[in-house]
Nucleic acid binder design. Sequence first.
DNA 1: CGATCGTTTTATACTGATTATTATTCGATA
DNA 2: TATCGAATAATAATCAGTATAAAACGATCG
Lengths: 142, 142
Amino acid sequence: MRLTHEQFRELAAKHGLAVTHQRQVVYEAVIASHGHHSPESIYAAVRRRIPSISLATVYNNLRLFIECGLLREVTPHASTLRVDGNIKPHHHLVCSRCKSVQDIEGEFIDFNRLSRQLPDGFDLTQPLIEVFGLCRRCRAKT
Amino acid sequence: MRLTHEQFRELAAKHGLAVTHQRQVVYEAVIASHGHHSPESIYAAVRRRIPSISLATVYNNLRLFIECGLLREVTPHASTLRVDGNIKPHHHLVCSRCKSVQDIEGEFIDFNRLSRQLPDGFDLTQPLIEVFGLCRRCRAKT
DNA sequence: CGATCGTTTTATACTGATTATTATTCGATA
DNA sequence: TATCGAATAATAATCAGTATAAAACGATCG
Ligand SMILES: [Mn+2]
Ligand SMILES: [Mn+2]
Ligand SMILES: [Zn+2]
Ligand SMILES: [Zn+2]
């Protein structure tokens, strides 16, 4: 999706961001992609319009957009592999900020409703849920 | 938790794994850690009992344990950052195998029950849920 | 026993994603 | 036009994880 300079200007202002050409193009590439894409693939798309752009600029601006709420991050606890010795099916509570993981009990999922929403062929025989929020410590830090 | 050699031997046999001293110590380190730890931290723990162990062995055996179901992986889509241009609160359906992400609609969470399970101080004002399963393609591959 | 062979471990090199650093460029303003 | 802070580009560095190849292990057979 292309935005006019005016539209992006307004959007950026609302989120407290300075406007640059690079930023507008990066943002538009994300929106146009209609999915959940990696920085590399955004970079590839952006280069078609700004061949001289640097990968670091793409990363910087994606981070910036995420911080100010223009984009949403989809990478729960992506930094490193984690293993769980408890293989009984159970769900997790994850802090969006510090990526800490703790177990959570309880039957809070309506599996009937959930299965009605599943795309065809998706296998949910061992459903695992991750609920994201802010842990106490991160919340305290503001 | 320490297991006797016999206990681990039995456990490994059940999952079709050969028994080695390294494997037993790695496994015990995960179980004893009672949490969701990274390979590096498991490595640190294991080195206290086998100073000569190599990091690759820890990785190899963790992967092996995960594959055969002795451990559970807790790393949803860990390989790389993903961004979402859609910042309206919505939930995701994630394939545990290929890490693909798609949106999922619907009110399938009972937030009353959920909040009752939350540890003190956990902030769930903007609850985001990720539901894990197997996408059609990965399911077909067996 | 002692040789053999497949498996496991070790040591180390390598890759790929991300971040850090630093110099350059840009743009608003005086 | 000169100045200054912010943004970008170029590049180096880091870090998690994987690949590779040599060494060690351990069961088995003669
Ligand atoms: Mn757990
Ligand atoms: Mn989404
Ligand atoms: Zn936190
Ligand atoms: Zn899949």
